[in-house]
């Protein structure tokens, strides 16, 4: 008996060791290429200087952030995108998913593919498509003028407010289908007969949506909300390629501004590192708030 037990123990130990070998490559990569550079950036954020000649400076980089009008503008822009775009997109994705979940919907596959199609485009590619569509001589202006809504072409990309709205429209277009797929996947785990029963009991589509679909999908809604928040606070490609951050930084995102500060003109890596940690803190705080809010409604 005792011999058998110790044999089992050593077998467990062996498997445990094999487990460590299996996960080692993945963990080492993340340690060396995420955690190590992140700690390096944190240390750099307390230093100042040009290039490699850097000296300790305490919190001065973080204090400078509050005086940097463009960075504050970029924070405002990101939150503007976040507050307007993410809720619209997630609600739209939920509605579309619950419509497409109905097995009796005609042409379901075609609708689903069509709505998911924008996800197949590259980020830079769709940013350029929207830039062209909303240009002064673009198709959107052409249609609006033809319909008599506008007297003459309106340059969406050179006005501060409309430039931001174009970014929001583009983001909704690109990511709604993506989130919808997560919801559709989640709905697969719910028996469709629950809906049938609710319908027979006289529940309206809106009631079914609020009382069945949303509560059952809560964990997935939470996951998509966190992913979208994270993505929106790190927006880069759209700001660079759709509006070029303009007009006059009116639509610039935090990542875009940090990139410009880090690689264009005189670079101060201490200051750019401090700014990037501000994004990290925001992402972390928002993720915690969302998880807390998600728990409460249980």
């Amino acid at each position: 008996m005792a011999g058998n037990n110790s044999k089992k123990m050593s077998l467990n130990k062996k498997q445990n060791l094999i487990g460590w070998f299996f996960l080692a490559p993945g963990v080492i990569f993340i340690a060396c290429l995420s955690f190590y550079p992140a700690i390096k950036a944190l240390i750099t954020s307390f230093k100042t200087g040009v290039g490699v000649n850097m000296t300790w400076t305490g919190l001065s980089n973080y204090i400078r952030i509050f005086e940097d009008k463009i960075f504050i503008q970029s924070i405002r822009n990101c939150f503007f995108y976040l507050i307007i775009q993410v809720p619209i997109m997630l609600i739209l994705a939920l509605i579309l998913a619950s419509i497409l979940n109905n097995p009796r919907l005609k042409f379901r596959g075609i609708y689903r593919t069509a709505i998911f199609l924008p996800c197949a485009t590259s980020l830079v590619a769709y940013a350029i498509i929207f830039r062209t569509l909303f240009a002064n001589d673009g198709y959107v202006n052409l249609v609006l003028v033809k319909l008599g809504i506008l007297d003459s072409a309106y340059n969406f990309l050179t006005h501060p407010f409309s430039a931001k709205i174009v970014i929001i429209i583009a983001l909704i277009w690109r990511w709604t289908g993506y989130n919808m797929v997560f919801y559709l996947a989640g709905l697969q785990n719910i028996e469709y007969s629950i809906y049938e029963a609710a319908k027979i009991d006289g529940a309206s589509p809106f009631q079914i949506f609020r009382k069945i679909t949303v509560p059952l999908l809560k964990p997935i809604i939470l996951m998509t909300a966190i992913m979208s928040t994270n993505g929106t606070l790190q927006l880069f490609d759209e700001s660079v390629n759709l509006t070029k951050g303009g007009p006059a930084n009116a639509s610039v995102t935090m990542s875009h501004y940090i990139f410009k500060k880090a690689f264009e003109g005189v670079t101060n890596f201490g200051y750019t590192s401090a700014m990037s940690f501000v994004i990290f803190i925001m992402v972390a705080i928002l993720a915690i708030i969302q998880m807390k809010a998600g728990d409460k409604r249980d």
Partner: peptide, 22 residues
């Protein structure tokens, strides 16, 4: 391993611009 996994997950929150320069 479970603790290590939780630590790994926090890497998701590190924005790429923070890693870009180092």
């Amino acid at each position: 391993k479970d603790i290590l996994f939780t630590i790994i997950l926090t890497a998701m929150m590190i924005p790429f611009v923070a890693l870009m320069v180092p």
